[in-house]
Structure formats: structure tokens, C-alpha cells
Amino acid sequence: MLSPVKIWRRQKEIRLILGKKGKIISWTKILTPPPDFKKYAPYAVVLVDFGDGTKAFGQLVDYEDRDLATGKKVKAVLRKIRDSYSEGVIAYGIKFRPI
């Protein structure tokens, strides 16, 4: 269960990644998701190397199949991660868009 406080705490890290550009170093497409992600499936998840010694996992959005490949350049964007729980806070986080 993600409490509003937990969502707020995680948002401090999101700020540091937002807007960064990098390259896909590996990927997958999920067809059996956890319950909160069921309505998005199938969805692609990519591991991105920012070239500054840091990496991040995130879903790939606004893409075509040929974009789902190692070496593809992507940019970190802010997107809704999952729907709100009873507290009414929507969790936002990092996803990646091809550039």
C-alpha cells in the first residue's frame, strides 16, 4: 500500500531524473503484470543508461515497436504510474519517451 507520505518521499528522487536523456541497454515487454498495472498491459519496460554512471528502469511510452531496441535514445518524462488508493493521491513517476 502506497501512502501519500510514501509517494511524496519518492517524488524527491523523480526530480533528479526528470528530463535526463540516455540510451536503452536492455528491455522487456510485460504481459503478466502486478494488479495495479493490469490495465496498462502489455507494456514495455526499459533499462536506461544516462552515460553519467547512473541508470534507471521505467516504462517506455509513445513508442513504436522498432523503438524497443538497445541503443535507442530516450528522454525521462513525468507520467502517471498508478491510480490513487483510498487517500486520493495519484502516484506520478518516471517513464521514457523515444527521441
Binding site: R10, I25, S26, W27, T28, I30, T32, P33, P34, D36, F37, Y40, Y43, V45, L47, A56, F57, G58, Q59, T70, I81, A91, G93
Partner: peptide
């Protein structure tokens, strides 16, 4: 990790990332 959970990854997904890397 929390980041892996928030990306909607699963254990098949994590091993799939390793598999794609290895195969390529």
C-alpha cells in the same frame, strides 16, 4: 527495489531484461 516495482516490473520481467542482454 522500489524503482523496479514502480516501473511495473515482475520477476519474469527482471530475468527477461537479463535474457535480452545475454542473447544480444
Amino acid at each position: 527495489s522500489g524503482e523496479e516495482q514502480e516501473a511495473g516490473l515482475t520477476f519474469p520481467g527482471l530475468y527477461a531484461v537479463m535474457a535480452n542482454y545475454y542473447l544480444e
